[in-house]
Amino acid sequence: MTGKLRPGEARNRRDTVAALFFLLPNFLGFVIFTSGPVIFSLAASFTNWNLQQTVPFRWVGFGNYGRLLADPEFHLYAVNTAYFLLGMPLAIAGSLCLAMMLSQKLKGIVIYRTLFYLPSFTSGVALMILWKALYNPDFGPVNAMIDWVTHSLHLSIAAPQWLLSTQNVLGLDVEKVGFAAKQLGIGARDAIIIMGIWTAVGGNNMLLYLAALTNVPQELSEAAELDGAGPWQVFRNVTWPQLAPTTFFIVVMSFIGGLQGGFEQARVMTAGGPAGTTTTLAYHIYTKAFEEFQIGYASAASWVLFALVFAATAINWKFGNREVSY
């Protein structure tokens, strides 16, 4: 046995060192800017850390977690966040329909695909400002159309006040978790859901479905048609099962995005209002940390949000995955 390495081993070691050297900048960046802050926030969640330094810094154990679980505001904003997920099935179904239409072999289809994908590469803030104008209750095109229709049909229905209204289609109360008849209607939350659906239908989900549709074996569809299956049966029994892995992926990602979302809309369109109805957990965490300086509490809220996302993903994985055959 000698201390010398064989030529192959020496080259492998050199390659490993070189690889590690090149990976190092990225790894350092990840540690400093991603995993470091994540671990730091976990530690902070067990403290009373307040940027104003009014209270002596100390460990509070699960105090922040206990406080936020008993905090009615946190519950309200969790309900708001869940409410925004209502648009998710419609957005996914819309993406699928659009992808099926855009998968046709038609002249100029690339232009259509580009046009429908346009919202995805347009500045989010610009889109939100545009929608804010569309939702203008008095002069916005949306209400102008509603007014025109109701007037033509001689209906005495007032058009919604959109971003200015606390009402919602489920009649959720504004100040406590529950329902209130006077809140039944259409308001800011619904306005944001509609905008979200519009943005998502032609977005990345549509691209994923387009890619998945090209992978559906043509011979399966043809065989089904030869057996006398109509278009709906072909879709129901051939195409849809083949799209299941993609659908599953889209549902999981949409759930994660939905639970973490709502920040930009609240920041740009509503400031979380009216009366907190468009404040989501993500926006609430921002407010607590950077406007009210309760870093410890906000960190705990972040970790509860993470737990919710994790649980939702796990449930999706456990039950949704059963329907998926790869």
């Binding site: 504004v174 009366a275 009210e292």
Partner: peptide, 21 residues
């Protein structure tokens, strides 16, 4: 009281008055 918290709570209630709720 944290002034930002106070402002948020007050604004929410004023919002409700302003919106006739």
């Amino acid at each position: 009281i944290n002034g930002q918290v106070a402002l948020r709570l007050l604004n929410k209630q004023l919002d409700l008055v302003k919106n006739n709720q």
